[in-house]
């Protein structure tokens, strides 16, 4: 942790207002499109389908005028975990394979195992890229409005979608706050001689360094949460179930086109 810039490392969850066809979509259609693509990426059964998913995501990011270099850089941090999970998958699947490619003591590697590992890695990559893309292109209030519209049928079952939607919005808003609090506590401790710098020490040493951060982070977050709740309360949140919205959206032909494109891509990801 060379410069304590935790917020800067957290690219995910940052909406950027750009003038792009994706940004201009009707929120409910936009959310539905992203939802379908995410589901397809999660359940796509074969390598070509997933590879198609990567291509579609990268193309969609350029359509959203999103800087792809940054999105890909965001993948580097979780890469070690991905590799470990993929390796585990490779060994577990290969274990029962009757014709392994390679054998080392009790571990063996088979073509099938390699394929499964690769599939898993690509799947996570696509999912993360898509989530990044989505948070880049959907603003918090579009999120609320879109979800509200999509979840409207639930109201007939007596479930209030509004509370659920607000929970999600506050969660998104809380991520950078959490990073900020962690950054401040780490800085305060480092300033007083705690060892926060360098990558010295093994995994255990690094985990030990995080432990003193967790408790104060919890208390600081709870305090912030309470204050945000109070600020929302003070501004009359929650007194009418059907609150209005400043922006008015209309479902247009271009929304239908993009939604259809998303559906078609999702089909391809499943069928290929």
């Amino acid at each position: 942790m060379r410069d304590f810039n935790l917020n800067g490392k957290m690219i995910a969850g940052q909406y950027v207002a750009v003038d792009s066809p994706v940004h201009a979509m009707e929120p409910a259609a936009k959310l539905a499109g992203f939802g379908i693509l995410l589901l397809a990426a999660a359940f796509s059964p074969r390598l070509p389908g997933i590879a198609f998913g990567v291509a579609i995501t990268l193309w969609g990011m350029t359509l959203s005028k999103m800087p792809i270099k940054n999105a890909i850089r965001g993948l580097i941090a979780p890469l070690p975990f991905l590799i470990i999970i993929a390796l585990l998958q490779v060994f577990i699947v290969s274990e029962t394979d009757p014709n392994p490619l390679y054998k080392l003591w009790f571990l063996q590697v088979s073509l099938n195992g390699l394929k499964t590992g690769l599939l898993l890695m690509l799947r996570f990559t696509v999912l993360m890229l898509m989530l990044n893309w989505m948070s880049f292109s959907v603003s918090p209030s579009e999120n609320i409005y879109g979800l509200q519209r999509l979840l409207k049928p639930l109201q007939r079952l007596g479930i209030q979608p509004m509370d659920f939607v607000m929970t999600i919005q506050i969660m998104v808003r809380f991520l950078p706050i959490l990073a900020q609090s962690a950054e401040r506590i780490a800085k305060a401790q480092a300033s007083r001689g705690a060892n926060w710098d360098g990558k010295s020490g093994g995994l255990i040493a690094r985990v030990k360094r995080i432990v003193p951060l967790i408790l104060p982070l919890f208390t600081a977050s709870l305090r912030r949460a309470e204050k945000i709740a109070m600020a929302m309360n003070a501004r009359a949140y929650g007194y009418h179930a059907d609150r209005t919205s400043m922006a008015i959206y209309h479902f247009q032909n271009k929304d239908a086109m993009l939604l259809l494109a998303a559906m078609a891509s999702a089909m391809m990801m499943i069928l290929l």
């Binding site: 909406y15 918090p140 209030s141 204050k227 400043m246 922006a247």
Partner: peptide, 27 residues
């Protein structure tokens, strides 16, 4: 502590939206 939304405009609209004012009026 009192900012609810990530965008200035959306944050300002939060209160009137809760009070169910008309969209054009909120703008």
């Amino acid at each position: 502590d009192q900012i609810v939304s990530a965008l200035v405009e959306e944050d300002v609209a939060f209160g009137p939206e809760n009070l169910c004012r008309l969209p054009s009026e909120i703008r």
